[in-house]
Simulated scan of single mutants.
Amino acid sequence: MENTPLLDGLHVVDLASFIAGPAATTVLGDFGADVVKVEPPGVGDSYRAFSRFPPTHRSKASTTPGSSTTATSAASS
């Protein structure tokens, strides 16, 4: 039996900024989707300030408009 993730090959662009959207794309990433989180330039995603909530940036690559670099989140806690 092959161990390919369920959503392997699915590409998702996460433009959401608060709770439901980031949480949904985190689950998609957990199941193998390739998720890229687009964040506002200079400030990033304001949801990161809510440290008491589970992390919703795991399994995602992050970028900002106009940026030529992409950061990858390796945290899975």
Rank of each mutant, 00 (worst) to 15 (best):
D34F: 01
P40I: 09
T63I: 14
D30K: 06
T56V: 15
S76E: 14
A16L: 01
T69C: 04
G9N: 00
G42R: 02
E2Q: 10
L28S: 07
A33Y: 02
D34M: 05
S67D: 00
A71Q: 11
P65C: 02
A23W: 04
V36A: 10
L6A: 14
A75E: 14
L6F: 12
L10G: 02
T64P: 01
D8T: 04
F50V: 12
R52K: 13
P22Q: 08
G32D: 03
P55I: 04
L7D: 05
T64K: 04
T64F: 02
N3V: 03
T72C: 09
P22D: 11
L10Y: 02
D30N: 11
A75G: 15
A23N: 07
P5D: 03
N3R: 01
A71V: 06
A61G: 12
G32S: 04
I19L: 15
V36N: 07
S62G: 08
E2Y: 02
K37N: 04
T64H: 05
R48Q: 11
V12N: 03
A71C: 05
S46W: 07
L6C: 03
G29K: 07
R58P: 05
S77I: 01
R52P: 00
A49T: 10
S68V: 08
N3Y: 00
P55N: 14
P40Q: 03
D14A: 08
G42W: 02
A20M: 04
